[in-house]
Amino acid sequence: MRARTAWVGGTALLLTAALAGPAVAAGPAPHERTREAVEAAVEAGAPGATVTARDGHGVWSATAGVGDTRTGEPRSAADRFRVASITKTFVATVLLQLEAEGRVSLDDPVDRWLPGVVRGHGHDGRRITLRRLLNHTSGIHDYLADPGFRSAYFTQDGFFRHRFDTLTPRDLVDLAMRHAPDFAPGTSWRYSNTNYVVAGMVIEKVTGRPYATEIERRIIAPLRLGATSVPGARVTLPRPSSRAYSTFAVPGGPAYDVTELNPSIASSAGEMISDSADLSRFYGALLGGELLPARQLKEMKTTVATEADAPHIRYGLGLMNTRLTCGVRVWGHDGGIHGSVSEAASTADGRHSVAVNFNGDWAGDTRDVLEKEFC
C-alpha cells in the first residue's frame, strides 16, 4: 500500500480550479504553482489528478486530466478514491485517543491484547510494544512482501483472478508470520503494513468494536467527513468517483481498469476511501489539536529515522515528518494502492494543509505537489 512506480504515457489535459478569497493583484495567484504541479503530473502520464488546499485564504481545489479514459469524463474535485496507507494516520489517532482515555498504554506488549497472534519464525508479541507497531520499529515482516501474495494481487493475471477475494486481518498476520522478522524489536526501522493490521486488531480487542466503527465515531462523524469511509469488503467506490488504472509496474505497459477490488487485502493498513477535501480537513484538524490532547499529539510527532536514503523523512506514530527542499517541514502521510496514489500534509499548527490524488499508479509526483504548495 505504499510502493510507487514510474511510467510516462500521454493523455489529454483538462483543468479546472476554484479559489476562495480575493484575487491577487500582482504575482502568481495563490496555489498557482500547485495547479501547475498537478497539470505536470498529467502531462507526465497520470490519467488525472485532484487536489485541495486549506489555508488562511479559505479552501481551494483544482483538477487535471480525466477520470475515465474511455469516456473522457474529467476528474472532479469531489472524486472519492482509495487513500491506501493514509489509513494508518486514522488508526494511530484512535489508538492515541484510547491511550488518552487510560484504556491502553503505548508501552503495552502486543501479547497483552492479542496473546499468541504475533508468534512464529522468531516473531514474539511479548517483546513488541504498541508504540513499535505505530512507528514501524517492531521488525514484524510485511505481509505485502510475501512472494505468493504479490503474485496473487500485484500481477495482472493474479489480480484479475483474486481481486474479489476476502481476507481477514488474521489471514494477513499469519502470512507475515511465515517469514522471519526483519530485525529485533526496537533495533531498526522498516515500513511494514502488518504493523497496522495488528494495530487495528488491538483497537477491536480494547473497545469490543471493529476499528472501522471507532474511526467513524471518533473521527469521521465529529469532523463531518462526508466523503470518508471504511469500506471493509465492499468492492466498489461510492459516487462521485473516477476510474482507477494500473500498469502493474510494467514500464510502458498498458493501463488496466482496477477500480473494483476487495480492500480487505489492505485492512487497517490501507483500506479507507476519502476525497481531497476531507483529507486536507483531517490533517489540519489533527495537527491543530482537535483530535488529540497535547501529550498524545506530542507522542505522535515523536519521530525516528527511516531509510538511510531518505534523511529528509522521519516517522512518528502513523505520521511522517518531511523536510521539503525549501527547509519547510510538513506532517502527513502518503499512500498507494492499485490505481490510486495519494498524499496529504499539513504544517505543524494545522493552519495550512493539502491533499492530492492521481488515479493511476505509474506516473505523477505527489511530493512535487507538496513542494509547490508549501514552498
Rank of each mutant, 00 (worst) to 15 (best):
Q97I: 15
D108L: 07
R163W: 07
A184R: 13
F154D: 11
E101Q: 15
Y143G: 02
R150C: 11
L134I: 13
H121D: 10
S151P: 00
A145V: 10
F183V: 10
L144P: 00
S151W: 13
A176Y: 03
S105V: 13
I140F: 08
D142P: 00
L134D: 07
D165F: 09
R127F: 04
G148Y: 05
G120Y: 04
A184C: 10
S192H: 04
R127Q: 14
W113D: 01
G186N: 07
R163M: 08
E99I: 12
L98V: 14
E99G: 04
P185T: 08
H179S: 12
T194P: 02
A184S: 14
L134P: 05
Q156L: 08
H136C: 07
Y153T: 01
R161G: 02
V173E: 02
D108W: 08
F154Q: 12
L96H: 10
S138E: 04
S192M: 08
D146N: 10
S138Q: 06
H136T: 11
D146M: 03
D124W: 03
P109V: 08
H136Y: 13
L114N: 00
S151F: 04
T166L: 09
H141I: 05
T137I: 11
D157S: 14
S188M: 03
L175R: 06
G125H: 01
Q156T: 13
A100S: 14
N195L: 02
T187G: 00
A184H: 08
G148D: 12
G125S: 04
F159K: 00
V118F: 02
G122L: 06
S188E: 12
M177C: 14
H179E: 14
G186V: 10
H136G: 01
L130C: 05
V173A: 02
T129R: 05
I140A: 04
P185L: 01
L96Y: 10
T137G: 09
L96N: 08
H162I: 10
L133F: 07
R150D: 12
F154Y: 15
D157E: 15
Y153S: 01
L98Y: 11
D171N: 13
V110L: 10
V118L: 06
R127D: 11
R150A: 14
Y191I: 09
S192K: 05
F183D: 06
L106K: 07
F149D: 03
T187C: 05
P109F: 09
D146V: 06
L144N: 10
D107G: 14
Q97S: 11
G102P: 00
R170I: 13
E101D: 15
R161F: 01
F164I: 13
T194N: 01
Y143M: 03
H162A: 09
G102W: 13
L96S: 09
R127Y: 00
A152D: 15
H136F: 12
L133C: 03
R190A: 15
L175M: 13
A180S: 14
F159Q: 02
T168I: 09
G186I: 04
